[in-house]
Design a binder for these strands. Structure first.
Length: 234
DNA sequence: GCGACAG
DNA sequence: ATCTTGTCGC
C-alpha cells in the first residue's frame, strides 16, 4: 500500500514540508524562455492581499489597467479565510487561493500580472509570482520592497539604474534591484513566468512613473485594504 | 541546532 | 502584513 494519498481534499490543512514539495513539483512548469509582452501594450493587472488575522479574514484585489494609459479597466475583490500562516518561503500558500478567486471574477483579459513579492528570487526559485504564473498560465513578474535573503550592490542614483540581485549561496542572478525613482530605495524585481528579467524591469519602470511602487501594486493595495475594512466592519 | 527571512 | 497622529514638504 502507498501511504501517500494521490489526491488530497482541497481544503485539507497543508503542512510546511508538503508545501515545499508542492513548490518543487510545480517549479518544473515555469517557463523562462519567453520575453513576454511589450511594455505599454495590452493589459497589466496588479494583485495584492490584505489580512485580518484576528478575524481570520483575507481579501484579495485585482486591478486591470490599460498598459498604454495606465487607466483602470476593471477592478474586483474576493474574500476568504486565512488557511495558511506566514512562513518565509511559503508566502504563496497564504496569498494565492484568494488571489485566484479574484482573478476568476475578472471579465477583462488580465494580460501581464504584477505581484507583490518574488518570482525567481526565492530559496527554491519558486516565489509567489512563479506560483501564480504556473497556476494561471499568465505571464507574471514580482516586485518586492525588500531583498529577502539576497544581496545586491547599491544601484546608481538615477531612475532606471539597476544592479543584480544575487543568491547568497550560488551567486546566481535571481532578480534585480531597480531604482524606480531618483534617490529612493530600489524595488526588487524578479521574473515570475513567461517573461524575461530585462522586460520585467522595463514593465516595472514603466508602471512606476510617479512613485517607487508600480501603479498596479498601489491600486491593488489600496483596493484590498478598503475592502478588508469594509468586510471587517470599520 | 538556532536564527533570519517576500507579505 | 499589522499596530498608528500628526506633520513636513512639493
Amino acid at each position: 500500500m502507498n501511504d501517500v494519498p494521490n489526491r488530497v481534499p482541497s481544503h485539507a490543512p497543508l503542512d510546511a514540508a508538503t508545501a515545499r514539495s508542492v513548490q518543487d513539483e510545480l517549479r518544473s512548469r515555469v517557463v523562462l524562455d519567453e520575453s513576454g509582452p511589450t511594455p505599454g501594450t495590452g493589459h497589466v493587472t496588479g494583485v495584492d492581499v490584505a489580512y485580518d488575522d484576528e478575524r481570520d479574514v483575507v481579501v484579495a484585489a485585482a486591478v486591470v489597467l490599460d498598459a498604454a494609459t495606465l487607466t483602470t479597466i476593471e477592478e474586483v475583490t474576493a474574500t476568504g479565510r486565512v488557511e495558511f500562516p506566514y512562513v518565509p518561503g511559503l508566502l504563496a500558500f497564504r496569498e494565492i487561493p484568494t488571489v485566484l478567486a479574484a482573478l476568476e471574477r475578472l471579465t477583462a483579459d488580465p494580460g501581464l500580472v504584477v505581484c507583490d513579492g518574488y518570482g525567481q528570487a526565492h530559496p527554491r526559485r519558486f516565489g509567489l509570482a512563479s506560483h501564480l504564473g504556473v497556476l494561471t498560465g499568465l505571464p507574471t513578474l514580482g516586485v518586492a520592497k525588500n531583498p529577502f535573503t539576497f544581496t545586491y550592490e547599491q544601484p546608481g542614483p538615477a531612475r532606471g539604474d539597476s544592479s543584480p540581485l544575487l543568491d547568497t549561496v550560488d551567486g546566481a542572478e535571481v532578480g534585480r534591484a531597480l531604482r524606480t525613482q531618483p534617490g529612493v530605495k530600489p524595488v526588487f524585481v524578479s521574473v515570475g513566468h513567461r517573461i524575461s528579467l530585462d522586460n520585467a524591469c522595463a514593465h516595472t519602470l514603466h508602471l512606476a512613473a510617479s512613485y517607487r511602487q508600480p501603479e498596479t501594486t498601489r491600486l491593488a493595495d489600496s483596493l484590498c485594504r478598503r475592502a478588508l475594512a469594509q468586510a471587517t466592519g470599520l
